[in-house]
């Protein structure tokens, strides 16, 4: 073996590597460095034994501390629940009409309601509650079945036109295509489209016999709708299925039958009340 060369100045061995005449010295590491290295290995072994580490088929070693990410999450969730226990109880027990007072309770209900809304309602009504064709916009001040907190809670609890909850509000827009002539439908469509453009003052609703005979029963003498039947106001600017003549004609010919599930069967009372308060506070609540 070749004798390693020594740097004449420091008398330390060189590694034999040289760049532009600069040689690398083989300076020994401090010994504590070695011990630190051993200490990290021992620490690693303890860590492997203490926490889930070694992969098996389908699971891992458990670790003697018994820690798991899942139980840690459950503990966190439980801690969160415990912290909000009293607010939660108030939310469930209080009279609905009293829920709007109390800043802390309201903030809690709004935050909780927002989470419930995102998980359960946003699929149809949109993440921003802006709705889409056939699914009402919850931000505006137009309510088919009433916009008070009580009405909103009832609707969310029992749903609309579903078969699973006997208390669900129910009504049906008939398919007039089955008993009206095509000419009459065209004429009605034209009339309703004009209503949609809010020209009520120029139109004489009483004199339109087609409308009086077929529509006024639900939509009212003045075509302003009826909340107890979920019959929309035909004179306002908001049209669930579109205000153009094609959409209106389709509505008159085939009828409409929008269904909303009964959420009382799925949500806890606290969630139900929270999401009601949230929806009521979106901007249109009465």
């Amino acid at each position: 073996m070749k004798t390693p060369e020594k740097d004449p100045h420091t008398e330390v061995e060189t590694t034999g590597h040289s760049w532009d005449g600069i040689e690398e010295l083989n300076t020994p590491l401090p010994r504590w460095w070695l011990w630190t290295f051993y200490a990290t290995i021992i620490w690693g072994l303890i860590y492997i034994a203490a926490y889930p580490a070694l992969p098996f088929f389908g699971s891992t070693s458990n670790g003697f501390l018994g820690w798991s990410a899942r139980s840690s999450l459950e503990a966190d969730l439980q801690q969160h629940k415990d912290r909000h226990a009293s607010l939660n109880n108030t939310l469930v027990d209080a009279e609905l009409s009293n829920l709007q007072t109390g800043q802390e309770l309201r903030q809690y209900a709004l935050a909780r309601g927002a989470a419930v809304f995102t998980a359960n309602c946003s699929q149809c009504h949109g993440a921003g509650a802006g709705g889409t064709v056939g699914y009402p916009n919850l931000l505006d001040n137009d309510w088919l079945w009433g916009g008070s907190l009580e009405s909103i809670t009832y609707i969310i609890n029992h749903g609309i036109r579903n078969t699973s909850d006997p208390d669900a509000q129910f009504s049906e827009m008939p398919a007039f295509g089955e008993f009206l002539e095509e000419d009459d439908i065209t004429s009605l469509t034209q009339f309703v489209t004009q209503l949609a453009q809010a020209k009520t003052k120029e139109l004489n609703i009483d004199e339109n016999t087609l409308f009086v005979e077929n529509c006024s029963g639900c939509h009212g003498q003045n075509a302003t709708g009826n909340e107890s039947l979920g019959a929309p106001d035909l004179t306002d600017a908001i049209w669930l299925y579109g205000a153009d003549s094609d959409s209106v004609e389709k509505t008159i010919t085939d009828g409409r039958f929008g269904v909303m599930p009964a959420w009382g069967q799925r949500l806890s009372e606290a969630d139900l009340r929270a999401v009601s308060i949230y929806v009521h506070a979106l901007g249109g609540g009465e």
């Binding site: 949109g126 931000l139 505006d140 106001d233 306002d236 600017a237 901007g283």
Partner: peptide, 18 residues
């Protein structure tokens, strides 16, 4: 500004932003 939706219409045709 809440951009979902960018604007909404009230029943009297007024335009609202959130």
């Amino acid at each position: 500004p809440v951009r979902n939706p960018t604007y909404l219409m009230q029943s009297d045709g007024a335009i609202r932003n959130i």
